[in-house]
Every structure is written in C-alpha cells, then in structure tokens.
Amino acid sequence: MVEDNIILDLLNRSDEKGIKLIFDQYYRYLCHAVYKVIPDTHIVEDLVQEVFYEIWKKRERLQINISLKAYLRRASINKSLNYVRAQRMKFSDNEDIKERFVDDDNSHEKVELSELTEVINQAVESLPERCRLVFSLSRFESMSYKEIAEQLDISMKTVENQISKALKILRKEINIYHKS
C-alpha cells in the first residue's frame, strides 16, 4: 500500500505512475461502492474512470485534506448521483422483485462468501431499482432521508416508503434463510 502523499506527489509531478497507483489501490473498492448505487458494471467502470480523469486533469493543483480513499469515494458517489439525475431514471414503484439466483454461470469467479453474505447479496440485488438505490444511499453512504430526497429529487415520503419496502423484502429473504 503506497501512502497517499507519495501518490499525490507523483500526480503533482504529472507522473503517470500516480494514476496507475490509484487504479491499483482504489479502483476495485470504488467500483464496488458505486455498484451498490448503480448496479451496472459498464456504467460503474465508466464513472469511476471519469473521476480518475478529473483528478488527472487537476493533478498539478490538487489539494486533498481528507484521505485520498475518502475523497475518491465521495467524488465517485457524487458522480454516480449526477448520472442518476442526468438520466432522469424512471422507476416503477410496482416493479416486481427480480428473479433470484439469475446468474450463476460465473460462480467460479465469485469470491467465496459465507452463506449469509450470499443470501444478503441476492436479497439486495433482488430489490426493485429505486428501492435498492434509496436503500443503498441510506445503508452504505449513511445519507439521511432529507439528503436522499434532495439528491434524487423525490419526496421524503417516497424515501420513507422505499426504505420500508426494502427492509420488509430483506427481512423476508433473510427469514427464509434462517428457517431453511
């Protein structure tokens, strides 16, 4: 793990190694964080790469007062929320829960997870899109109802409904696991 100040120094000096190190150390972490908000691998990779390019563009005057990791996460999540807003994503509140166990073909590539983690993964990924987005912003980005409503341009009541819906679905899926 290379220290932030060394990476920033390389960037300040326009050394490509700086950006390569950012990829090596933070790319996977940031893609996973953004994927929780936008579950599309291609969009996720595009967005994270765009964040890195913005860093590269302002490399000579880059000043970061928090850890580089925290800075990049915040920038990536903001970028993904901008994307959501720009796309004016339309969600159907009545969207059916997606089929479980849809994609098992790449099981050999999957990280070994505990059974419960696997159940949680499937349950979160089975949530309707808007429900999942609202839930993820609350759970993984610690955003308040007010912040989520502002970011997604929806009412607080909608946030409330989507959170309740997500928790009920997750509880049902986890209960099935515990009973089986």
Binding site: H32, K36, E45, N106, E109, V111, L113, L116, N121
Partner: peptide
Amino acid sequence: LYTPDESF
C-alpha cells in the same frame, strides 16, 4: 454484509 460479486 452486502458485497457485490462483480470483479473489477
């Protein structure tokens, strides 16, 4: 515990 399976 949610951890996306996708490998980036």
